[in-house]
Design a protein around this nucleic acid. Structure first.
Lengths: 129, 129
DNA sequence: TGCCTCGGTCACCCGGAGGTAACCATGCAG
DNA sequence: CTGCATGGTTACCTCCGGGTGACCGAGGCA
C-alpha cells in the first residue's frame, strides 16, 4: 500500500482508498479477523496468524490502534500482559469487510478461471503469434 | 500489496486477501470506479484518473483484464481505438466495493480523529514521559 | 518534411513495505 | 547460574510497486 496523493480525487473512490491504505496491507485483515472472535493477547495473535513476524504484528497493531480500530490494554504485571480487542469502529469495519469476504468466497473461482484463460491465451500467442 | 503465501490461512480472511491483492493496489479502485459509469477509451481513463501514468494505467488494466474484471476491445483502425468496460463480475465487484466506500465515507472522520488523538498523546509522552 | 495523436512497450531508478535477527527488562523454574 | 516466557524495540537488508522518460508505427495535417 502507498501514501495518498492529496491532489488526486476520484470522487467516490478516494475515501475508500484511504481506508484501503489502512486495511489493505499484508496483515491488518488477519488481525481484525482474529480479534473478531474476542480479546486476544499478543502472543496469542502471533501464534494464530500464520507467518507473521513479531515486528509486523507490533507494527500492524500500532497502526490499527492509532486509527481507533483496536484498543490496547496493558497490565503492569510480570511477565507483561497486553490484551488487544476491537473497538466499536473496528467491529463495524469487520462487518463491512464481511461483505467483501463473502464476495471473495463467491467469486474467487471465477477470477482464477479468467486468469487461467488469459494466461493460456497469452502463452498461445507467444508460441504461435 | 504483496504476493500471497499459500501456506498462510486464516480461514475467512485469506480469500479476501487474494481479492485485496487484486483491488488493493494504488490504481485499480479508481479504474473500476471510472468504468462504473460506462465504457471508456484508454486516454479517456488517463485524463480522468488524476496522476496516473501511462505505464501504470496499462499495467492496471492488464491485471484487471486478466482477472476477468474488465474487457478490452480493440478496433484495428488508425489511430488505434481501444475500449475498456466492466464485465458482469466487475460490476458485482463495484457494488461490493460500494458498501466499503460508504463505510469509508461514514467513518473516515472517526479514524482521523482517533489518529489525531493518538499522535497528540504520543507527542505528549515523548515530551514529558 | 516535420510534428501530433493513440495506445502502448522498454529500461532504468527510487522509496518504502516487510522480513530477519539481535537485544532489552523482569521474574520464575530448574 | 542458566534458560525460558512476555511483549516488545532496533538495525539492517531485500524486493518490488510504481514513477519517469524515451521510443514505436501508421495516419493526418500543415
Amino acid at each position: 500500500m502507498q501514501a495518498i496523493d492529496p491532489t488526486a480525487h476520484s470522487p467516490g473512490a478516494c475515501q475508500a482508498r484511504e481506508v484501503l491504505d489502512r486495511v489493505g496491507d499484508k496483515w491488518s485483515l488477519y488481525v481484525i479477523s482474529q480479534l473478531g472472535s474476542g480479546t486476544k493477547r499478543f502472543n496469542e495473535l502471533k501464534r494464530e496468524i500464520d507467518g507473521i513476524s513479531q515486528r509486523m504484528l507490533t507494527v500492524t497493531l500500532r497502526g490499527l490502534e492509532r486509527d481507533g480500530i483496536v484498543t490496547r490494554t496493558m497490565y503492569p504485571v510480570m511477565p507483561p500482559r497486553v490484551e488487544y480487542s476491537l473497538t466499536d469502529l473496528g467491529r463495524t469495519l469487520l462487518e463491512t469487510v464481511g461483505t467483501f469476504v463473502r464476495w471473495a468466497e463467491e467469486n474467487l473461482d471465477q477470477i482464477e478461471a479468467a486468469r487461467a484463460r488469459y494466461d493460456a491465451r497469452a502463452g498461445e500467442i507467444e508460441a504461435f503469434g
